[in-house]
Design a protein around this nucleic acid. Structure first.
Lengths: 227, 227
DNA sequence: TTCCGCTGGATTGTCAACAATTACCCGTTG
DNA sequence: CAACGGGTAATTGTTGACAATCCAGCGGAA
């Protein structure tokens, strides 16, 4: 139980905020195991913080869906279930599909420039790594992230980028869904950007939904063969 | 500034939870004005609670998207903007469309029974009121609520029923979008249920998305003519 | 042996006081 | 007269202590 390291988070903001960011990272990356119980006194001692500040961080984590709290019982890290992962993909299909439709309509020139630059970077990276690890790094996140930003719908952006994506990352880190769909996913990204550039919202939505559904089916297959 | 009434909320649970529910109601119904600043000491005095418990309630309200908090400045009730309302409808179109698709696939017999009973009740109500006020009461909420429940996707259910719907209700209460689409909306509800019963997820999604988009266009028109 | 109730320990919920930051008011100055 | 700066008051962030609740282990009775 080593001492907490929350110095490098940027010293500004409030203590509760820093605790929140630190704990979020540890939960996403599995340093705090999924399904494990959270002890408020223990964590408070570890970070040299009071229980009050820690509780504030815990409540934010609960609202992110990374913790479950029951009154007079305490908080537990959510556990990762096959069903939860598939549920997540269904919601993403709906929301990111809509994000694409809106992005095709409302994107700015800067959005397109950044999307194309990103795609170019990913292409280099892919050639280097021979289509092996496109999905693991944050590359895939970058793509989906940027698309959502281009939708210009603040509620959609908040829901996906500040809420669901942490859960997505948690599943990826811990269940480690390294996809064999690397090159294919890359090409699909390109087609989605083209549709957005052409202003064809209907096509952009369709392509994104297929893209996500393909990932989902891939995972489904993996899970059924493994178990 | 009358004394707080949080006695009738069910005395169980925790104090912070009761404060949360009470304040949520007052914000949704506009008794606490949209855009107004929240004073922690004042509210704490009003409910005879400590600031700590109140702050917990405020943070839950923030995670619901009903409050905005800035560090060392305080909390404000979100203000209702035309853009925010339209954003909300776009997200609902995506999510409830998916909910219908899933409901068509995973609904139970009990789901269908309840949906049909509800539709029957709404029909009576509509005949009584001569198609005037189908939308105002919670009737429309009941419908959308039950559909989402039938999707069996816990993340989707939580996102819509525990997060977005309070914002929807806030807009309805305060901007008072009494719809002239009463009978038409009612018929659309019927068609959606039929599609779900037939197990046609694609059609159910399509119909729900049209249904919500029609509401959205209706509001858009109203807003442009009024201003 | 198995089930039930009880007691001790620990954990969570709640509170009131302290420290740090911000907002407001007012006098000064260009 | 308007803009800037200092000082005070109020608000927020944080802490440690108190009260209520839950959990584990033990002992007794059927």
């Amino acid at each position: 139980m080593e001492g907490g390291q929350l110095k490098s988070i940027e010293a500004s903001q409030s203590l509760a905020e820093r605790l929140f960011v630190t704990l979020r990272g540890e939960i996403v990356e599995g340093q705090i195991a999924a399904g494990s119980k959270i002890s408020e006194p223990e964590l408070a001692r570890r970070f040299n913080a009071s229980r009050g500040s820690l509780r504030e961080a815990l409540m934010r984590l609960e609202s992110l869906g990374l913790l479950e709290r029951r009154v007079n019982v305490g908080a537990r890290v959510v556990d990762l279930t096959e069903r939860g992962l598939l549920d997540l993909y269904e919601v993403r299909e709906a929301l990111e599909g809509m994000a694409c439709r809106l992005a095709a309509q409302y994107h700015t020139k800067e959005d397109l420039v950044e999307l194309r630059q990103m795609l170019a970077r990913h292409e280099q990276q892919e050639e280097l790594q021979a289509g092996k690890a496109y999905f693991q790094p944050e590359g895939d996140f970058d793509f989906h992230f940027r698309i959502v930003q281009a939708s210009k719908n603040d509620l959609l952006i908040d829901t996906l980028c500040n809420r669901l994506y942490y859960r997505v990352r948690m599943y990826r880190y811990q269940l480690g869904m390294a996809s064999p769909r690397a090159q294919r996913a890359f090409r699909e990204h390109g087609h989605i950007i083209e549709a957005i550039e052409a202003g064809d919202g209907e096509l952009a939505e369709l392509l994104m939904r297929r893209h996500i559904r393909a990932s989902r089916h891939n995972i489904e297959k993996k899970l059924t063969t493994e178990t």
